[in-house]
């Protein structure tokens, strides 16, 4: 590997060198913005660096990590994040699949509906959070107004959506599902369009119902797209920040505080830099672990799918 292989001709060698120059700026920017902060967190996580130490780093080994083990609020945010992620992504998959199936059929005005269907994805999350906070406003919000008109609540029993723990959690899930379902339906739609129609025709000739066809043809053939969308969304939902920060600020009483909010508060508000770094490391490691497991699962089901066909 140290000597250039004699099999590579000079033009190819020059190409490789040019290629390196072309790719270098991108690699430098990526290392600076992604690799450095993670590396810094691993290093800084070994120090106490907060108001108590006069914002000077004092080496404490694994002290921050021991503190995390006993930090009940961190694990609470972890559970909140996990619950938010799982429920949101599941709902998005189901609704996204429904939208994709509808958009996969030819009908008049499909182009317009498809444009409308990607709109939520393109809008700024921070602003959308304000839209949903307004919808879930306890006094003037449309959510309560609809329930009132349906007779499900009365003026005295109006729901304080963002003021109670479980309704606030429900509200952020609704907002997230609205915002990111389009992403999933676009991916699934692309997959649907690559499934040949004669498969369904043959299945119908064999006496299969559309419902059976969905489970026997659509889902297995769409599995790669489903898994990729799930992995993407899982990672994104796990790092959710702006939606919750703007909608509830983590409230009421920390009921909607997710890992991102807690890390941000430690780094920016409590100025507890060493501890924030350790939190970053723990979140990073847990996320990588989840991604590796997910990836192994994707590969296994992929090879299973190809083995079955």
């Amino acid at each position: 590997m140290t000597r250039p292989s004699p099999l590579i001709d000079p033009i190819q060698a020059r190409d490789r060198r040019t290629g390196l120059y072309l790719v270098l700026p991108a690699v430098i920017v990526l290392l600076l913005v992604f690799a450095y902060p993670i590396a810094q967190a691993f290093w800084l996580g070994l120090f106490a660096n907060n108001l108590g130490t006069g914002l000077q780093p004092v080496f404490i080994g694994l002290g921050n990590y021991l503190r995390i083990l006993g930090d009940g609020f961190f694990w609470q945010t972890f559970v909140t994040t996990f619950r938010f992620t799982i429920i949101s992504v599941l709902l998005e998959l189901v609704i996204g699949m429904g939208i994709a199936l509808v958009l996969n059929r030819a009908f008049q005005g499909r182009g317009a509906v498809r444009t409308i269907a990607i709109l939520p994805w393109a809008l700024p999350t921070a602003l959308i959070a304000m839209v949903w906070a307004w919808i879930f406003n306890d006094q003037f919000g449309i959510a309560n107004d609809i329930l009132l008109r349906l007779g499900l609540v009365s003026r005295e029993t109006l729901i304080n959506w963002l003021g109670q723990p479980w309704t606030a959690n429900l509200a952020i899930i609704v907002a997230d599902v609205w915002k990111t379902t389009p992403f999933i339906s676009i991916l699934l739609l692309a997959g649907l369009q690559s499934i040949p129609a004669d498969l369904y025709e043959a299945h119908a000739l064999d006496g299969g119902t559309p419902w059976q066809g969905f489970w026997r043809i659509t889902v297995p053939l769409l599995l790669p797209q489903i898994l990729i969308a799930t992995l993407f969304r899982f990672a994104q939902a796990f790092g959710v920040y702006d939606l919750i920060q703007v909608m509830t600020g983590g409230g009421p009483g920390g009921a909607t505080a997710v890992v991102s909010l807690y890390i941000y508060a430690n780094a920016m508000r409590y100025l507890d830099f060493g501890y924030a770094a350790a939190l970053i490391v723990v979140t990073f490691v847990l996320l990588i672990l989840a991604v590796v497991l997910c990836n192994a699962w994707i590969n296994r089901s992929r090879s299973k799918a190809s083995g079955a066909s």
């Binding site: 490789r16 790719v23 990526l30 992604f34 993407f232 890992v259 920016m268 830099f273 979140t283």
Partner: peptide
């Protein structure tokens, strides 16, 4: 097209960072 050294590593790294939550970067940045 040009297959510079380390292409595989660069691509693997790019795929990995698409999954990074921004909160992990904020303090270092």
């Amino acid at each position: 097209r040009l297959h510079p050294r380390g292409s595989h590593w660069i691509l693997a790294g790019i795929l990995l960072v698409t999954l990074f939550p921004y909160i992990l970067l904020i303090q270092g940045l």
